[in-house]
Design a protein around this nucleic acid. Structure first.
Lengths: 201, 201, 201, 201
DNA sequence: AATGAATGAGTCTTCATTCAT
DNA sequence: AATGAATGAAGACTCATTCAT
């Protein structure tokens, strides 16, 4: 578990792990297979990652980092109306292209029981970044006022769920899901037009 | 005639499995422990369930059935306004009391890779029942018109997600999450009052 | 293990056991399968046979009994020359038609290690009956003089071996094997014609 | 570089397997015991052999290889008369000293049912080598003419059978069995002396 | 006698992880 | 750092046998 230095090799192992996890599931994946696929020896994997679970964590954390970057880019673009459609579309498209990691991300909770659970740092990061930007848009009146952190969590969860339902479990009719989500979220998030009436005190 | 099969025994095993899975997680749980806890021999478990995974499936399926009953009861009560708050509160309260099963439900996706995934019958059932009732409310003008099936999926996903975030991962400040979800969903679902303006074409 | 009385049922179980053993081998055969095939319940098998191994023993013993009858019939027919060809042909034909039992018979030795081994009664019986008849033919000068018991064992072994090689392992070209065995055995057993010379003192 | 594979270790495992199989029989033998006896960890056995059955096969194959060497040595020694006695005696003596493997060899047939049976390579080898040498002796007129392959099979079978009868099942009076086999085989194999008469056309 | 649900001992095999080279 | 042979704990599942009905 000594800190190894070849970043390319680390990336190779991660990529191999991703492929094998996607094909075999967590339980079915074997470290030896991952090593072979990465072109290294079994033991080498342990020079870069402490355990099988650490591989999952690294993979998911990476996914979340990239999603964070993706969404921040969209939300940081200055607009006069909140880019709700763009954000949700970007998130869905991103998760669509990473469907294999999506299932991994679902995994880590069930693996341990109700044992104390520490969310991945990447999660808190994504959550925070999103909340900050949502709060800014609220301040500008582009989005209705909700608790920013909770709204961020809600948005992430909704999109992830739809990605899972639509892509992994469902019939793949993503367009329909996406359309409805956009409608619902616009309705919930966009502020009342002048003369419009908010439904919630 | 030999001993008649005992339906109570099946229930006992299921209950024991639930407890052990919650305590040890899927990987940590041992069939032998489940059997002991259920007061039967190891082999007896296999008279009622084909495998360890089948136990998870049965448990989750049961959870979904009971959730279905719960939510249908709320939605079937005739009201003049859609019981959005009541439904979401009921769902959250139910999942709160079943947090151990919630983590199991997360599990079944990651256990297999992207291998052909068959959603549990209970899922489709819940989805259908909910969609039917939402459609009825839409027809009565109590809820804005969305695609009922997708909306049902969206609602389920949102609630499950919040339950997970709020209860398992977060700080347990359920009230805050619940409040925000209620606000968002009311905003999205309630129809415009007379003179109000829908935000979505 | 109480002595059960329905002889037909016992025969049914034996027949089922034979079929299942032949298909699955000893280790692969399950008592439950044998019971199903015999049209009885699992427990019923144990009313007629003490154990799985007892089934094998009963099957093999039965095979040997029938082979004994078969061969005695041939050897008891009074002839002026020893019916060597007829005997060997009859034995081969019989074993050919019972090839499934042949493999079972091979089994019981390897099942236990070098632990004290008691040959089946049927074996000693076959051996004795054959030896008696061979001795009689020797007395009549129809067969060269060898130790009768040993010769009987040798004959049985040779025929069984050829049946196994020719039928189970080999290419099924039984005719060639049979022809050679007949040649060899005639050469070895028939007494010298007048003027002929025995090779062995 | 990691530890180099140790061919000695493979031999150790094989030797341990042989001992344990002989003591406990195939079913009774436990891989863990074999490993302990060989001085390796349980899993190590599986680095060298694919399964429990593969151990049996390797053991038997080895036995046959050594028997082949043994018999070829005898038959390759140039003589003016066929070394029938020597060959049979050598084979019997060899099998006598390997009686534990003999019982294993009996096993492999019964383990599987009538399922497609592939004889061990060692068998075909032994068969071929013997047949070649018998054919050579026939060409020199030292042995009567029979089909060489069939005769080889017949000889092997006879000797194995006698070894089994005499050593494992019988009363251990090997000398008597051996004497009779030698008589019979000499009679069958030695060519007629001048003026002698063959019994078979 | 017959049934077949229940038993529970028993073990092969896997594979994450280690460590000698 | 890299290797991959070695480790050995761990457990799901089977199935011969029993016995309550």
């Amino acid at each position: 578990m000594a800190r190894a230095i070849d970043p390319q090799k680390k990336a190779d192992i991660l990529a191999a792990a991703r492929a094998v996890f996607a094909e075999q599931g967590f339980v079915g994946a074997r470290i030896a297979d991952i090593a072979t696929r990465a072109g290294v020896a079994t033991g080498t994997v342990y020079l870069y990652f402490a355990s099988k679970e650490a591989l999952v964590a690294a993979l998911v954390d990476d996914l979340l980092s990239r999603l964070t970057v993706e969404l921040c880019a969209v939300l940081d673009r200055p607009t006069t109306v909140a880019p709700i459609d763009e954000t949700i579309r970007a998130a869905l498209a991103f998760l669509l292209s990473e469907r294999d990691l999506l299932s991994l991300q679902r995994l880590d909770l069930g693996l341990k029981g109700l044992a104390p659970y520490r969310p991945l740092p990447g999660y808190r990061q994504l959550w925070q970044e999103l909340a900050t930007r949502l709060a800014a848009r609220m301040a500008q009146g582009q989005i209705r006022r909700y608790d920013p952190l909770t709204l961020a969590a809600l948005l992430i969860g909704t999109v992830e769920w739809v990605a899972e339902i639509g892509l992994l479990r469902g019939d793949g009719d993503v367009a329909k899901y996406e359309a409805t989500v956009l409608q619902v979220m616009n309705q919930a998030l966009l502020p009342p037009e002048e003369g419009g009436v908010s439904r919630v005190a």
